[in-house]
């Protein structure tokens, strides 16, 4: 066999497995992700094992030994989990009502999506103004003696997470719901299923994978809470979330090793939650939803 023939044969064999010159199109994207994501992450992990003192696990030990640092995990989860659950849980019935066609749907969708444009700072400013002791909200509650304190504490951050997270969850769930073939529900109706049964036995199971994905993405959004925890929260106390701890360690104390270690812990905790949710999801139906999706 000549060399060209061998080369042709090899190319054939590769092409049969789907490897050919078109795959070069992936290279720039892969290079970016490898250079800007994988490498820095690996570098950060390496850095977290090289603290100035305390041996290989010194930085992790320092984080977990200090209650002030360690508790940031619980603080973050106690903010982000309820916020994500509320955002998803509230989106389902609303999106379910809105999946059909009706007048003003586009307007309502747009209005519900507006908070995405607000950004953390306007949300924070607004919450401080609106919910503050002299704000409109407390004015409406003139019958209460003491103004209710809803900012510079847990609730301020929580509201901020709902305002930024809900539209996102709503959009995603609406998109998943419109991907479910509406004739399936009609079919169920002809078989005698009532409203509630149709939702519970047909729509909800088909929506479950989408719910899991939405929950994960909303959770990620809430979990990385940083500016609002500083601006409307109590960054030294009840809303000292893990990202504040990481930022503080890396850029205020300049302990890069500890900062990286906290970032790694943060990633692990977050991926753990995502893995649990996706694990639960894989127990459910994962096939087609019969629609366009």
């Amino acid at each position: 066999m000549t060399r060209t023939q061998t080369r042709l044969a090899v190319r054939h064999r590769l092409a049969e497995r789907g490897v050919d010159r078109q795959l070069w199109l992936l290279v720039p994207g892969l290079a970016c992700v490898l250079a800007l994501f994988v490498y820095p992450f690996a570098y950060g992990i390496g850095l977290s094992f090289q603290p100035a003192e305390g041996g290989v696990f010194g930085a992790y030990r320092a984080f977990f030994a200090d209650a002030y640092q360690r508790d940031t995990i619980a603080t973050t989860l106690s903010l982000s989990l309820p916020a994500a659950i509320l955002n998803v849980a509230a989106s389902v019935p609303i999106a379910y009502r809105m999946r059909g066609r009706f007048r003003g749907k586009r307007l309502l969708t747009t209005v519900l999506v507006v908070p995405i444009t607000l950004g953390t700072v306007l949300t924070a400013e607004g919450l401080l103004n609106y919910l503050g002791p002299a704000g409109w909200f407390n004015r409406l509650l003139f019958f209460v003696d003491e103004p209710i304190r809803l900012t510079n504490n847990y609730w301020g951050v929580f509201f901020s997470l709902v305002i930024t997270g809900f539209p996102f969850a709503f959009l995603l769930i609406l998109s998943y719901l419109s991907g479910i073939d509406p004739t399936l529900e009609r079919a169920a109706a002809t078989l005698g299923a009532g409203r509630r049964q149709r939702f519970q036995r047909i729509t909800l199971p088909l929506l479950a994978p989408g719910l899991a994905t939405t929950f994960c993405l909303t959770f990620v959004l809430a979990f990385s809470v940083f500016p609002s925890a500083v601006l409307v929260g109590d960054p030294a106390g009840t809303t000292r979330v893990i990202s504040i701890a990481a930022y503080h360690a890396a850029y205020e104390v300049y302990d890069y090793s500890l900062g990286s270690a906290i970032a790694v812990v943060m990633g692990v905790v977050e991926l753990l939650v995502v893995a649990i949710v996706l694990g639960l999801r894989s127990l459910l139906y994962t096939g087609s939803t019969g629609g366009k999706g």
Partner: peptide, 24 residues
């Protein structure tokens, strides 16, 4: 490859932002 492309969306920006900024 797909997972690799998905990870940056699945991770909070701060977690990779800190090591990335350090490298940069």
């Amino acid at each position: 490859v797909y997972l690799l492309f998905l990870l940056p969306i699945l991770m909070p920006p701060i977690t990779y932002g800190i090591p990335l900024a350090t490298v940069l």
